[in-house]
Each structure stands twice: as C-alpha cells, then as structure tokens.
Design a protein around this nucleic acid. Structure first.
Lengths: 199, 199
DNA sequence: TCATCTGCCTAACGAACGTTAGTTAGTTAA
DNA sequence: TTAACTAACTAACGTTCGTTAGGCAGATGA
C-alpha cells in the first residue's frame, strides 16, 4: 500500500465517520487528500470497494490494537480491574487513537444501502473475538475481587459492557468533552461496582 | 395537516431511519407514498425542511408518548420500580410503536450536513425534559427499595440509564430479536440491582 | 538508452439528484 | 354558474454524482 492509497483511506475513514457513506462524495475525499477525484480509481476500483476495504482494515487494526494493549508490558503485572479499565478506556476514547471504533459503530447503525448484511457479518465476527476475551477477563476480575457467587453472570456482564460503551458513543455526539468525561467516569464506577457485587 | 402530508412524513420517518438523510432520495419517498416526486413540494418546501419538521414533530410526539404512559391509568398505583421498567421498555422497544426513538438516535449519530448544531440543540432540550423526570422517578425508586445511602447518585444513574438504552439501540441493529430480547432483560436486571444497591 | 510501468491528470459520460414552472382535474365558495 | 383554490401531474432545469477513457510526466529496469 503506497502513500497516497493510505492517505485516501485515512481521509475516507474520517469523512465516512462524520458524514456517512452517502453523505461523503469521492470529490470530498479527493479534495481533502489533495488530488483529483478520478485519481482515487488508481488505488480503489469503486467507492463501494473503498468502503469495504476500509471496514475490513479497520476491524483488523482495532482488534490488533486492543490485543496489543492487553498483551503489552503496560498490562503485564496489572490487576484484572486495571486491565479491564484499560479496555474500557480504549473503547470509550472516541477522540483519540480509536477513531475506528466510532466508524464501526456508525457504519453498523446506518450501513450503506446494499451492504447491510455483509457489514453486519463482519462486525459480529469481530465482536465475537472481543466477547471471548472479555469473558476470561471478567472471570479473572471476579476472582480477584473475591466475588462469592460468580454463577454464570458472564453473558449479562458482557451485554452490559457492550451496551455501555455503545451508549457512550452515541452520547459522545451530544455532549461536550467535559460532560462526556464525567459520564464515562460515572459509568465505569457503576460498572465496576456491579461486577464486584456478585450474583 | 392533510392526509398526504402525513403519509409523506410517516414514509420519510421510516426511510430516513433506515437509510439516513443523504441515503434517502425524495423519489424514494414519493414512490413509497405513491405520488410523483414534485408533488412533495405541495406539502414541504424542501427536503431539508421536511427533515427538520420531522425531527421537531417526532420529538414532540415521543415526549407526549412517554409522558402519557407515565401519567396513564396503567402507571397509576404502580410501584416506582414498575414505572421505571415501563419507561425502560418504552425506550428499548425499537420494533414497536417507538420508531421515533430509533430515528432520533440515528439522526444524532449521523446528522445531515449543515444541520448538526440545530439537531443537537433540539435533542439536548428533549433529553433535559426526560432527565428531569427520571431524577424524580429514580429518587422515588430508591426510597421505595429502602436504599440506605441515596447520596447524590442521581446523575450517575441517569448517565447509566442513557448509556444503556442508547447502547441497546446500537446493538439492536446487530443481533436477532431473540438475542436482543435476552440482552434487554440482562441489562434491566443489572440496572435495577445497581439502583437498589445504594451508594 | 529506450521501453515499460506507475500515478496522476483533463475531459467527458450517463444517471440521479433536488428543484421549478406550468398545466390540469377536482373541490369549494360566492 | 362561475371563480378561486387545492393537490396532483408532466416536463424540464442545472448540478452533482460515480465512473471511464485517454494522455502525459517521471521513475524503473533491461
């Protein structure tokens, strides 16, 4: 992947995230990259294919990112609580490095016409990887916190975890950074208290 | 508002919700209504204005709906827990009557270009009404459940409530009805346990 | 050195978009 | 009965869209 192709992809990610697939034209992308519209076709054979490639690549990159975070030296030796918080932070940091998360969620909520099923399938598969990892981490966190009746709350916790991070993304659109930051903290406190509460 | 104008609005609500503003053309709407495209202009002066009217009307209708539910005879005499659950159901029943909720959330996440600020302001004002109502209901629920230290968890509870219902909407796109129903139940149980947990 | 390849360009295409103008049939009101 | 109004229509407008064709400069490799 050469330099221009990469810049097209990065720009497309930003614009698709902000305005959606139909709300972003190839000329928007080209202008922002600094090339003429037809030059995009030297790198991607259609707008639709650019989008599909983007979804696939973003999924791969995001997965690599949090896998690496969880496997990095920062995470080693930390408690399960701390590692869970790192993961929570990763999925609720919509401003920073993880613009890909916003893109995926928005794409899921308003997918391009005709690509609904394909995208849904890709994202479900992605989330399955995450769920699997989460299950282990949550069990670890419960054990660490000395929860008496861990029972099989796993799926409930995962459902809540997803609902919370997805919900925070929606609200991120609505509120200023300070308000949003406070809400993230409130939600995390609540989440952690719930996990340590036991069943 | 005559019959055709109403049908245009209802159809637009459905199509805008499914495909977004830019993803829905006036000819899509006209065809679905059973009229020719320019006939829309007999009722709305532009596509943008149709959308704005739709947002305003949906906000008014949705607010009226849950206010009426909370004020209706079904709610009278019920416990705060039951009433909170009724509200929770209202905001997580995306299949049924409350298509307006999906429309508002999606519009918030991917607003039409140029209308971002206007829509944001409208929805924030709407949510403020809801927050105000929720505050009272949550306090009532805490008192009813005999929570010892109600402290000032109000804002935290509201943040969690919003995050959960917004998150469930995003996930509704992803999972089948049965899975989603299970997740809703799991999330509610968690929410209620958290409320009665106390601070 | 010369042929090939690459990445970008300009020009232009047909299709679809939102919108306006002008017309017509049906209803309402004087 | 006739005038005015309403809500739909057909025709057509200019613009923008995604896309294709063809050319040209610079880098690459034999």
């Amino acid at each position: 992947m050469n330099d221009t192709a990469l810049r097209i992809k990065q720009t497309a990610l930003r614009l698709f995230t902000e305005y959606g697939f139909e709300g972003t034209s190839l000329s928007d992308i080209a202008q922002s990259v600094g090339i003429k519209t037809p030059s995009i076709y030297a790198h991607y054979k259609s707008k639709e294919q650019l989008f599909i490639r983007l979804v696939e690549d973003v999924i791969t990159e995001e997965r690599d990112k949090w896998l690496q975070i969880m496997d990095g030296e920062d995470a080693r030796g930390r408690s399960a609580k701390e590692r869970l918080r790192m993961l929570f932070d990763f999925f609720t940091d919509f401003t920073g490095m993880s613009a890909g998360q916003s893109f995926l969620k928005r794409t899921m909520l308003v997918p391009p016409r005709g690509l609904e099923e394909r995208i849904r399938a890709d994202i479900i598969a992605y989330e399955e990887t995450l769920s699997s990892f989460l299950r282990g981490l949550l069990r670890e966190a419960e054990a660490e916190a000395g929860v008496e009746k861990p029972a099989d709350r796993g799926e409930q916790q995962i459902a809540v975890f997803y609902a919370l991070i997805d919900g925070l993304l929606v609200e991120f659109q609505l509120y200023d950074a300070a308000t949003h930051r406070k809400r993230i903290e409130a939600v995390w406190d609540w989440l952690w208290e719930g996990i340590t509460r036991g069943g």
